[in-house]
Design a protein around this nucleic acid. Structure first.
Lengths: 225, 225
DNA sequence: CGATTAGTGGAAGGATTTCCTCCACTTGAC
DNA sequence: GTCAAGTGGAGGAAATCCTTCCACTAATCG
């Protein structure tokens, strides 16, 4: 489960460390700039040379694939763990959404960026895992709504789109202020979902299929480019 | 006030029309892609040739300047009108925030993008107008809080950052679904600001100076690049 | 500790994107 | 109808980005 590959020549210790640093840096840069961030910026952020990056990931597609899979696995693991261990659906949902960026990367970014779509074209595992996350998310949402902890007039699509927007507020540096600000804004955003809404929302709850539809039409700025 | 310049040779009718189309298209592309969007994409979106764009705006800086000024003027006009005509501060504030993108472009984007900072370096009017918008925004917020219409534990900076994130949800095409979805998500976001918060927010209210500070540190993803 | 070989960084050439100018053609204004 | 302002798009210059190559470094193993 936790194993890396079948059993190719294991990486040397330093190479393994670099590989992980690259994935982590790439993830951050993808979120900060986009999936079209220059490879050299990724290398610099990871503190390695450009050649090291290319040796490990022969082209951008491979890097995107590795980052996406790594991210997906983390989200799915978290989602499963939460659904199993946390009896209160509202708490579980909030904890899941708390890793906004993972969820955003998992559900939206891998489905939106042209680079990502190309890179992940022949990787069905991605779609499976995305579906898994979506399923858990929807289930938690419904249960939280059933027991009155979340306003009833929203759908999973609403949640995802708000998340997608909020992910832009993720702190990049280790700056203290940045961390605090994110905590505040996340809490603030969550407050929008509490029950007894101030006013009914226009239209009907947005589902994930609507998000898909919007993406195909390039309907929202967040799907730009 | 409404006059275009001192009195250079007035543009021919079709040229004037094209100029306006270009500004409008550039604004949309800036929001969709960023201030580094290729000039040709702007031209295409405006339905004009690349040469026409360059004839009207000799380089990117001029275009950014024109778009920013146009946008600023609209926001300032709206802000003044609202403060004068709308007695209820909460309603006025909401109406102002309703043009998320104008406000976002005015306050954040012109202060963040490297291109924009370079282009607007010697245009003090921009800073004046931004200050004007900020002043009205802060005043409306405080008044709305004083009369209990908005939760007391937020500052203008919180508002601006949430706006900045929400602007990513702006509809791009004329798609009906996109419009509705934006309305929903805007209403949802506003609901986060209603009084009697579910839980107190961590930290202290974020002011605009904090936003500036964060920008300089590149502290949030939204300031990326 | 020394040999071996996977691993590394950065320079550099090639490919691609983007900028911007030029000019033959079109169209509004008078 | 004249003509100057205006237009589109081709194409060269410039910048950006991708990728390879190779001399050098440092884990690993005996």
């Amino acid at each position: 489960m936790q194993q890396e590959r079948q059993d190719p020549i294991p990486l040397r210790a330093d190479a393994q460390r670099n590989r992980e640093q690259i994935i982590q840096a790439a993830r951050a840069e993808f979120l900060r700039v986009g999936m079209d961030v220059p490879m050299e910026e990724v290398a610099r952020a990871a503190g390695v040379g450009i050649a090291t990056l290319y040796r490990r990931f022969p082209d951008r597609s491979e890097l995107i694939k590795a980052v996406s899979l790594d991210n997906m696995r983390r989200v799915v693991a978290l989602a499963r763990r939460l659904e199993q261990d946390e009896p209160d659906p509202a708490t579980a949902l909030r904890a899941l959404l708390r890793s906004v960026n993972d969820v955003y990367l998992s559900i939206v970014m891998t489905a939106v960026s042209a680079h990502a779509r190309e890179a992940l074209k022949d990787t069905p595992e991605i779609d499976e895992q995305r579906l898994e996350v979506l399923t858990v998310l929807s289930r938690l949402l419904r249960r939280a709504q059933d027991q009155g902890a979340i306003r009833p007039d929203i759908g999973a699509g609403d949640l995802i789109l708000v998340l997608a927007a909020t992910s832009r507020l993720m702190p990049i540096t280790d700056d203290d202020l940045g961390g605090t600000v994110f905590e505040r804004l996340f809490a603030l955003t969550m407050d929008a979902f509490r029950p007894a809404p101030a006013s009914p929302l226009p239209g009907r709850p947005v589902e994930y299929s609507d998000v898909e539809h919007l993406r195909q039409a390039g309907g929202l700025a967040i799907f730009g480019r």
